[in-house]
Design a binder for these strands. Structure first.
Lengths: 228, 228, 228, 228
DNA sequence: TCCTAAACGAGACGGTACGTCTCGTCTTAGG
DNA sequence: CCTAAGACGAGACGTACCGTCTCGTTTAGGA
């Protein structure tokens, strides 16, 4: 009688999406549909080709126009998808941004283990900035942060699904450093915030240019400060 | 022959506005206009009452609805002002946000001089967060950052008119610390970035709750790291 | 990929609209929408209820305020319609005026056949002026002519879609007169212009008052002049 | 205490203006002001240079852009005049259009006296159309008619100050024809309407191209019809 | 010689309409 | 029951123009 739940149970957008595009070679909209040029329903379940086409369109749009030129209408147009299809699976722009961001995660930053926290962090920062610069993910993340300022739900998504997850991945680096005695365990929490803040600040100011010396100095300061 | 520059020389929006509302008691729209209820031109020059009414309307709107519910239309409606009047003096939303932010600057954070960089920074952070929490300025600043992601002009305004200016004000604190030998001069630049990043991260995550211990620890880390 | 044509093929505004409202009793905006008070999409095709509501709103607005007080914004407001809906189907004000004019065509002037050109024309002029006086169509037509002075597209619409069409309907009257030998065939073209000019002049001067004797004299002159 | 009367007594716009520009060579805006490039008050009376500049600007604007692109703002801009100066002397757009029209009157159509009404009218129509085609007056008149549809005051101005005046000048032609026995006196009134209607229709449809044969036929019909 | 009056340019003001864009919802027709 | 398609109401966007107002300047003419 009423509208179906949104999203349908068991197909959480943030879980299903990676399955679609995780394979590394993100399908282009053209390749995602059959030869007819018209992609149609495959029955009462999600069409992976549609999801891929939407993600790919959002990716390219973010890369070309940035957050400013991004709109659901344009994504639907490029993807050859209906808007309800998009809203069904990514009820919020934030969800779509997250999906775009995670579509690049396959080629993502490996957690380094160089035996030195400073070296690890330098490696991470440089890899992260290069990732942001060379993929649509930088734009996606800027968009996600901006979007989070307009919508509490988006903020929650950013905080709980994204930052928290990223923090978990970082945790291993800091745990190793604690074990090596490089930093005090009580400082880890604040160190993480400094680390995030530094990266966000640069991203939001559009200053993620490659500047190894400057990065090295900032990292060195963080590590030194957390020593004891 | 052509249209005059926008804004006219000598009446830079970000400079003239504070004069209007800097006196601490921001006039309400109602009080900003005469008894007639209709505010009109005062000749071929800016009407301070209009400027004040627009700023006040933008302030209250930002406070009530946040960045999401903010629109120039609504500001014009509340201020009893015409939209061209707003665009004349604040060509960009960012300009308006900056004006709103700076309207609270009167009650702003005094640069402390406690003889210790850590104490100075703790004082500053706590004052800044309280400022963000208790005035519309927190919302204004979040809005400004978000807006800067949609518009290169806004980003330039944020970077060149705002962050740069704020950095200048901070410089004195760090200069004193350098003179006292607390930190190495070469570290100042990176330290400023860590400081900004930490505050921005908390603001954008809407976590500027009062947590003196945590703040103290982060500040301590920054200072320690910059020592040598 | 690109935006669809505007308007979509097969739904020419000036053809589809009459079907909606031709039934004589123009539905009011209220009756044009369901009980919910909110009119929404009926799928990927034109909603006749919306079209009817827009026409009705434009009619009443023209009747109340005339061409001066007419605006798309106000039409949208009264019709409870979105502006893009109006622009989608009536890209030009002229299109809307034509639609309003033709909405009254149901009660329109029957082509008379009295056996005498002078009697036919007298009947036509009196019926036309009464039509202009007693329906919003007089205002709509004045508006259309005025609009045509501001916009080449509107002028083309007036000339090609309207005057030409009206001339066709008149042709039959003159053809009969030619067959009866009342007028020379070579004079028909100029006679039509005199006839149109006479009516337009009176309408634009707002002097379509009922004055049968005066009309009779003018008609008589035209017919006499075209005799040989 | 209150605003001065508008316009000041004794300087009716439609009377004073011709005096300024009637001399045939309409001064350009540049020549209308002194060498300084800035035209200022010449005391508590009308500045003819300003009036001339405004008329000239309106003329050229109408010629370049037509009624569509005409605005008081643009006239003021081109004339280097203040908007209140314009509104002071031409309270209505219609007044300004009339002034522009009459600025060309110097080179206006001479009343012919060929001894034949048909020849007189042919001469008049051809001269009028040429006048409309080759000067800004055609545009001015179209604008005046269009403007009259938005404003009863403009309509009154068109009817009482303009059409009536023009009719007076024509009267002499018809009076001569009556004296010659070419037409019946009772037909003059209707004949004038046919004559006006024919010209207006062609002007408003932007079809005042030179077509002597067609004009001759229409004129012949009018004269024949008015014979008796 | 001063003073009052009025026109001048300039341009800001509150409005309002423009035509376009995006939003998120809704309904279809077809697989 | 999903899909592409696209219409829908809503309303913000930034611009143009409207007609009014006040400014400070300039000049003329009466006291």
């Amino acid at each position: 009688m009423s509208r179906p739940p949104h999203p349908p149970p068991g197909i959480a957008p943030n879980e299903a999406t990676p399955d679609v595009v995780q394979d590394g070679n993100v399908p282009s909209p053209a390749s995602a549909m059959g030869a007819s040029g018209r992609r149609t329903s495959i029955g009462a379940r999600r069409n992976p080709a549609s999801a891929a086409a939407v993600i790919a369109a959002a990716r390219s749009l973010l890369q070309e126009k940035g957050y400013a030129g991004f709109s659901i209408d344009e994504v639907a147009r490029r993807a050859g998808a209906g808007k309800p299809t998009i809203y069904r699976w990514w009820p919020t722009k934030a969800d779509l941004f997250i999906a775009v961001y995670q579509a690049d995660k396959a080629a993502t930053i490996a957690i380094p283990d160089t035996g030195s926290l400073a070296r690890d962090l330098r490696t991470l920062v440089n890899a992260l900035w290069a990732f942001w610069r060379t993929t649509p993910s930088g734009g996606a993340f800027r968009a996600l942060i901006a979007e989070a300022q307009t919508n509490p739900a988006s903020l929650a998504a950013l905080r709980d699904r994204f930052v928290a997850q990223h923090m978990c991945r970082l945790q291993i680096v800091f745990d190793r450093a604690v074990e090596r005695g490089e930093i005090a365990p009580d400082n880890v929490e604040a160190l993480v915030e400094l680390y995030f803040g530094f990266n966000w600040f640069r991203l939001l100011m559009n200053r993620i240019d490659d500047d190894p010396d400057h990065v090295a100095r900032a990292v060195q300061m963080m590590v030194e400060g957390a020593r004891r």
